[in-house]
Amino acid sequence: MAFHSQRFWKWALPSGAVGSGALAALLGACCGVPWLVAAIGVSGAIAVARVAFLAPYLWIAAFGVSLGGLIWAYRVEPVCDAACVPAKRRGRRLIAWLILATLVALFVAVRGWQGFSS
């Protein structure tokens, strides 16, 4: 998938942002949430605890990608003449903002869990 293609921006960017945000949330959940051991077992929880130090980097990546999505959604496009089809920018912008809102909600939730963390 080429970096400049529409498909990249449409699928890879949102899934990259939400995916790394979800992973960061899972790692951040380590040590602070009571259900983690019940959900993924003792071995799984220990494995998560071992890589929990990666959580801040994943948050940076998630917010970076999300920011990239916003820039893309609001980028100045060449004025269309009869030869091109104008892009649907409203949908793009809505998705970009939804992703950012999801990440912020996840981040706030994880910060809440970490209030209990050891």
Binding site: C31, V37, A38, V42, I46, V48, A49, S118
Partner: peptide, 13 residues
């Protein structure tokens, strides 16, 4: 330790 704290379980292991 708290037996449902993943960090504690990792420490124990």
């Amino acid at each position: 330790v708290d037996p449902i704290c993943s960090g504690c379980l990792r420490g124990l292991k």
